[in-house]
Amino acid sequence: MLRQSALAQGLVRCHVCGHLHPLAKNRHARHCKVCGGLLHARRPHSLQITLALLISSYALYIPANIFPIMTVTQLGMTEIHTIIGGIFALVEKDMAPIAVLVFVASILVPLLKLLGLSALVLHVHLRWQGNTRWWMRIYRLIVFVGRWSMLDIFMISILVAVVDLSGGVSHVIAGPAATAFAAVVVLTMIAAKSFDPRLIWDNHTAL
């Protein structure tokens, strides 16, 4: 009886505490008797919710990269930085390692997350066959790296607070791209959370 999914055996695993329950005979939602969490065999509307959040993230990715993320004023000189511009400024100041770090966290990770999640949604929806373990690795990587994109937002919050010198000598103002970028990070994190990885396996065992 093992080597089968719990669902195929008429069992539902509670998302929260892991307790197994028999599948409900009617369609009414039930609660787990151990922890009180709502029971469902797979996250309801997993693909639709993930897709909706992904589309919003793609849309917000554009203003996040076009608009200035911060404005630095020093001794009357004002510099406006976009995300890319900030990275180039770091390279010019011979801070290549930090530039690579910011590039990975602010450009590479969000982009790979968007593309990776899109591929996962397509994979499940179109029932692509292939190496299931490989898709699982992509999913876990996306979940793991998601939070690290907040690096740029945290860095800006620190700069805004600390570079605020009296008499207008020096100050930093956060720009509108910060809101758009933070929204991309949060929405893709929720998108990754709403994607149910068990769909990858259902897809495969349905053959």
């Binding site: 009886m1 093992l2 080597r3 089968q4 999914s5 719990a6 669902l7 195929a8 055996q9 069992l11 695993r13 998302h15 892991g18 197994l20 699982m136 990885p197 068990r198 990858i200 396996w201 259902d202």
Partner: peptide, 14 residues
């Protein structure tokens, strides 16, 4: 015996 299932692939397990 009580069974359990993998949270990420739903495999039924002891």
């Amino acid at each position: 015996p009580p069974l359990t299932a993998c949270p990420e692939c739903d495999l039924l397990l002891k």
